[in-house]
Computed example of a mutant assay.
Amino acid sequence: MDFAFNFLIYMFILFPIVSIVHEFGHAFFAKLFSQKIEEISIGMGKVIFEKDLLSIKSAYFAFGWVTLNEDMEGKMTKFQTSLFLLGGIIFNLATAVILDIFTGYEFFYFRNYVDSFIFLSYLQVLNLLPVTLIHGESDGKQMISRVLKS
């Protein structure tokens, strides 16, 4: 029973929160560089919740993205583009470090769901790997292709 309950907590609460933090990191840097955001989306499938720019879809535990206005894309410098693409990872790492400080630095020791959230946030660093995923390219692959292309 514990495994099934914990799996449900991870899948339907922790993963989506980590994704939201990640996408808000991208959105923060987009706004910092005066980019117009069209959508911040969490999940895939039908929209189940929509408020302003944020849309949460039926498979809300899977993936996410920030869509910029087409007119704005390409108007960022290579440095700004890199920070925009790294923004999600930066926010995940900052959140993990801050929570780690407040919970006592016991890395890989899972006492509760906060520790699990911290671990999942640290795992977002893997998004730097330049790979193509089910839903598209990782942040690392996008950064390499955009920076080399410009």
Rank of each mutant, 00 (worst) to 15 (best):
S55Y: 09
D115E: 05
R111P: 00
I118S: 01
K141S: 04
L148S: 13
I37F: 02
D52C: 10
A4S: 13
M76G: 11
K75G: 09
A27I: 04
T67H: 11
V66L: 07
N69F: 05
K46Q: 11
L53N: 09
E73V: 15
F107R: 12
N6F: 08
K36D: 15
K75I: 04
I56H: 07
Q35E: 02
M1V: 14
Y105G: 15
A96D: 00
V125F: 12
Y109W: 11
L32Q: 12
I89L: 09
R146C: 04
F12H: 01
I89R: 00
G74N: 13
S145Y: 08
S116F: 11
D115A: 07
M1N: 13
V147C: 07
I37K: 03
W65K: 10
L53Q: 11
K36S: 14
F119H: 00
P16F: 00
E50C: 03
A96R: 03
Y109S: 13
F15R: 09
L32A: 12
V47T: 13
V47P: 11
P130N: 04
V131H: 02
S121D: 06
G64H: 00
E137Y: 12
A27F: 00
G87T: 03
I9K: 10
I48K: 07
Q35H: 07
M11F: 14
F119Q: 05
E50W: 10
I90G: 06
G64S: 01
